[in-house]
């Protein structure tokens, strides 16, 4: 398959990365090369093969339902771009 310019605009939009037209063209060229490489996969017959998400065949470990964390707001917000009254500030959210 071939990647289109629209595909690049679509995924840049999904990934929330501002991309101007010129950049998108460059990205398109590079991504097309990479997808040519990736296309090799399609030649492999994987019928009946189970996908492998993790190399280790282990199950999920659970934690007990206990509160272990205490308030560290001051430390965490010391590195925040913009806070007021203990809230993280962002440009107006419109629902």
């Amino acid at each position: 398959m071939t990647l289109s310019f629209d595909d690049v605009r679509r995924i840049a939009d999904l990934a929330y990365i501002e991309t101007n037209e010129e950049e998108a063209h460059v990205v398109l060229a590079q991504l097309s090369d990479i997808f040519n490489l990736i296309e090799q996969m399609q030649a492999v017959d994987t019928l009946g093969v189970e996908p492998l998400s993790h190399a280790q065949d282990v199950t999920q470990r659970l934690r007990d339902d206990i509160v272990t964390e205490s308030d560290q707001r001051e430390r965490f917000q010391a590195i925040a771009p913009q806070v007021e009254e203990g809230l993280y500030l962002v440009p107006k959210v419109i629902e």
Partner: peptide
């Protein structure tokens, strides 16, 4: 392991995992 008690002062019950600091990981509550 942060508390879910209702009505707390804003962001006092948001720990490093809840804030998604770089590098943190989830562990499921039994």
């Amino acid at each position: 392991g942060a508390s879910i008690a209702y009505g707390a002062i804003p962001n006092t019950q948001a720990c490093e995992v809840d804030l998604a600091l770089p590098g943190v990981l989830p562990v499921l509550n039994k």
